[in-house]
């Protein structure tokens, strides 16, 4: 087969994959060809199939049942638009990092670094990616990460003060830059009044904690919250959840530390 034939064959197998009709032999052939530099994958056939399907379904589309719609709305109630700018205030972080409940080894060093940094710089402005609070189930994304990550780190959250009943875990992969919090017994919040906010402490990257964004707890029980770090986090030493005003802008006087997951 010449180059043209090989590309055509690969394209036909791609189409078969999208239509879900490849047999075992074709799968092997497809796997082999997909490693060939002459065979380039793109999304065009998949998009075409979706466009055709949408076109045909136009006339026979059925409405989402009301109960499913309600579940969906509840499930995505934690989807929050990003705040325009979140300002991390130094005093707040000093207090968090030196919390007596936790003999946190890095706290002192970090606090000193924060002070030094703040003397010379304006407070950090961060544009966080939004977080999704997804009611369980599904937690497939988290399960996927647990299956595929080779460097998965896990740590327990401990609730502070009024949040002592909360429990939780955080898993994180430096290599995949992906992580999830599984939080139980966090009080439901009214997004119009206050919102939870995640902070990632990675001293190797920056003295200042990375804003992980704001999220809501739409219902009691357990929720899985994907971590949506806007910048690379390479060696997180702690994950801190705070309660903030809507939009997640931190104001030191209002600082409430909800929970901390220490270094692994």
């Amino acid at each position: 087969m010449n180059d043209h034939d090989i590309r055509n064959r690969f394209e036909e197998l791609e189409a078969g994959g999208i239509l879900g009709d490849l047999d075992a032999e074709e799968i092997k052939e497809w796997e082999l060809l997909s490693k060939d530099p002459r065979c380039k994958r793109d999304f065009s056939l998949e998009l075409t199939a979706a466009a055709i399907e949408a076109e045909f379904l136009q006339s026979r589309q059925s409405e989402l049942p009301q109960n499913v719609k309600e579940k969906l709305r509840t499930g995505i109630a934690g989807f929050v638009a990003p705040a325009p700018a979140n300002v991390v205030s130094l005093p707040a972080w000093r207090r968090i990092l030196s919390a007596p409940q936790f003999a946190w080894g890095i706290a002192a060093a970090l606090a000193i670094l924060l002070v030094a940094k703040t003397l010379f710089e304006e407070p950090q402005s961060i544009h966080p990616a939004p977080l999704a609070g997804v009611a369980l189930p599904p937690s497939e994304a988290k399960s996927q990460l647990m299956r595929k990550a080779r460097d998965l780190k896990e740590s327990d959250f401990g609730g502070l003060a009024d949040y002592g009943k909360m429990t939780g875990k955080v898993i994180w992969s430096d290599a995949l830059q992906e992580g999830y919090m599984t939080l139980t017994n966090l009080p439901v919040n009214d997004p119009a009044v206050k919102q939870y906010q995640l902070w990632i402490v990675d001293p190797k990257r920056d003295e200042k904690p990375v804003d992980g964004g704001v999220f809501d707890i739409p219902a009691t029980g357990t929720v899985v919250v994907p971590i949506r770090n806007p910048v690379a986090v390479n060696d997180p030493q702690a994950f801190v959840i705070t309660m903030e005003q809507p939009g997640g802008v931190v104001v030191s006087k209002q600082q409430v530390v909800v929970a901390i997951a220490k270094a692994y």
Binding site: E53, A54, L57, R60, Q61, S62, E63, L64, P65, V68, K69, L72, R73, I76, F79
Partner: peptide, 19 residues
């Protein structure tokens, strides 16, 4: 997101039911 659900939930539901 709510807009998307209102507009496309029927499409997503129909595709899901198909497969």
């Amino acid at each position: 997101m709510q807009q998307c659900i209102t507009k496309y939930s029927g499409l997503v539901w129909s595709i899901a039911r198909r497969y």
